[in-house]
Write a protein that binds this DNA or RNA. Structure first.
Lengths: 233, 233, 233, 233
DNA sequence: TAATAATCGAGACGGTACGTCGCGTCTTCTG
DNA sequence: CAGAAGACGCGACGTACCGTCTCGATTATTA
């Protein structure tokens, strides 16, 4: 994972779903008061919560000012945040882990599938993909980070691992259910079908960032892939 | 474009748009009278052809040795190639342009469409996508460069511009023909249809580099998207 | 003086001038009514005696291991001694004061002058200089600290102030007595004469640390300076 | 020696007299035009002469402003001199070598002995010691550097090696001549006699920097040591 | 016995400097 | 004039200490 140390030592670090967030602060907030946690008597001065806030703010601020991601040196971030370099290195092993953490902190939660029909679930899933793509072009932060995210292979990788993969698994489950229930042909590979459905949207989101992501696109993709391209009479 | 100056004459410079060798033209104009000749009588010592060979060899060699793309500094490339830094900067404006040039030098030509049937052309197009994906995992150079190509936004961008986009246009033309000839529903947006077809393969090629790219995949994608996922009886 | 605060009561604080334990007095005054008692009933947990022992041991140990004085950071000393940095800063204002304290703790007492003859007293004084010089080359601690003591101007200065100056004054007194009693020419400046006598030994002790300090040197210096270099018949 | 690289490769690097100065520039100036020197065709851009001037000026300037020697970090010197840190490290291995170079650049040449009488030569030698001591207290640079020179063992060591030792050897030769010619008792060790003579002045110069160095001191030391302290009638 | 208060080890904190590396430009000599 | 060599100002790297500041825990005195 990305964080350096900390992380409440009771957190299992399961990397299977989006609930990992070993960030400590964030986790603490989500887990509740946690007064009874097996908190093993930390020694020394505890890490200031204000630091990551300051660092994140600095990064967002610099990106807002139009500073390209490649120019966001640790040095500069520390200077802007009014924070010591060592303090940053104490929390993150490098720029990439920092960005991953920042990115995750603004990532919307996984969609909740209504479960009424497979088609409906697929639309919801693809719609969430579409919405993330749209968010990328709206949010100043997301826009900048995503636009140049490819700059950092590890960032890319971890992002996939913690964000895209979990949703992909949701998709696979839904496709499988569709086959079981007879809504989808069952003579095809599940992964293959899933790629047919998500590929077009990911293409427009990741590879061709200028492409249209109009509302209704998700539904249209699902329906068209379901129906096929052959002309009907 | 990427090259700083002349561009090896002989390289077809396939993709027209954006005016091939722009700086080359400009340079030619500045060099003097030029006497009307297209290759305007350079003065002084001519550029050694050996230089780019040495530079390319150095890059490939370093990548083969496992040096990550991110550690390929101009400094190191020059050192390895036994070439002055200034000589490199005289030819390319930076690392990215160098890589783009190198990448283009090993890129296979655009596929030739048989034109017999729209389905056949689509399969050929997607098959070339698949083959490139496979090549990425075979060629030591391609593997390394691609695997971390995302590191360089401009490299990524130029690559798309010079390699992916042209093929995309081929795809759009084919889809249009399919609609005109009645092989494809004509109630859909051409770009949309093209994305439905290419998305799955690009997904596996670019976004999920570990995914299977088995032979026959291209054909299967075309057919499945054509037929749709709805169970037939 | 060097110590930050209390100063172990019991340490005689030999060298008067500069008002012994200045900060101690001040602290005492600030602590409150003080009820008249000289050691005004400190409150809270008293300082552990073990700390300075641990710190001194750590310094000596590191020097013994060959660690150069310049690399003895407070950080490292604290780590080695198993002591908190703040605890060190609570006692000494910096590295130099710590070293001064350590140095003084191993400094032999001022020599006792027999007072029989001026020549005898001078020999005793110079002999003590010689012995200190020899000790520097024997004791692992003294060797290391002295050899690089010049590294710390304040250490040097304080050492002179508390060790060399007092003995210098002893020397001046003796020379004066010699003049009064007719053993030494009285047409010369007292300081000048003293420098003639101590200069050679200090030269070999401080400035040319490799020079010989054989037994009998002190006596020979006194006698030769007394007699002069001119050949006698 | 102190310099990092450069140094005209023909210079023998004899460390026996003050004529070592491998500084290149200085040597070049002293050696003459040296047009026929075996200068082995340096490659690449030659080192700018302006750099050491700028660096030396920066150091002197900072010391003049009262910045203590200990705060003269390479970083700060570079900043003040308007010079890259790497440029400094290219020439000197560290602060100490830089200071040694600077110090040597302002060191007066060895005294020329008249050779008429041994006493006269000794006076000249001691007078040069005295003058250096006086210079230390006059020159802003020397004052500051010397006053805290002890901070840098290597600086101290190299200074002794290149400046003090050579003159010491001059002194030893003179004392030997004095013994041979009957001006000095020959029943004493030469080094011992030399230390008797130079010790007092070095004491006042190096160890007790506040002591008086009035004109005539050198002569007085020689005469008094020659005559002895015993009262004459 | 309980409250109070200074100490302790530990280590986070904002800084500054370290010595190295790469950037893109420049300046020299050689072919 | 191109080319290699490499110096140059610049700025970032990741580490080490600086001296200060919180922490929880410990250990005295005072109430």
């Amino acid at each position: 994972m990305s964080r350096q140390d900390g992380g409440t030592p009771g957190t299992p670090e399961t990397h299977d779903d989006g609930a990992a967030t070993p960030t400590g602060a964030a986790t603490g907030a989500l887990t509740g008061p946690a007064t009874g946690a097996p908190t093993g008597a930390r020694r020394g001065r505890p890490r200031s919560e204000g630091v990551e806030r300051a660092v994140f703010d600095a990064v967002v601020g610099l990106l807002d000012e139009g500073v390209p991601l490649a120019e966001l040196s640790i040095e500069r971030i520390a200077r802007t945040a009014g924070v010591g370099k060592a303090t940053i290195y104490r929390r993150w092993t490098g720029k990439e882990e920092l960005f991953v953490d920042l990115l995750r902190s603004v990532e919307p939660p996984d969609p909740v599938l209504p479960g009424t029909s497979v088609r409906g679930d697929l639309v919801v899933l693809l719609e969430s993909l579409r919405e993330r793509g749209v968010a990328k072009r709206t949010s100043s932060l997301l826009h900048n980070v995503f636009a140049q995210m490819q700059l950092y292979p590890r960032l890319w990788e971890v992002y996939h691992h913690t964000v895209i993969e979990p949703r992909r698994r949701l998709g696979l489950d839904t496709v499988r259910r569709g086959m079981d229930q007879g809504e989808i042909r069952d003579d095809l590979d599940i992964e293959f079908v899933n790629d047919l459905l998500t590929g077009p949207l990911l293409l427009r989101t990741v590879i061709r960032p200028g492409a249209s992501l109009e509302p209704g696109l998700a539904e249209r993709v699902v329906d068209t892939v379901m129906e096929g391209l052959r002309p009907r009479d």
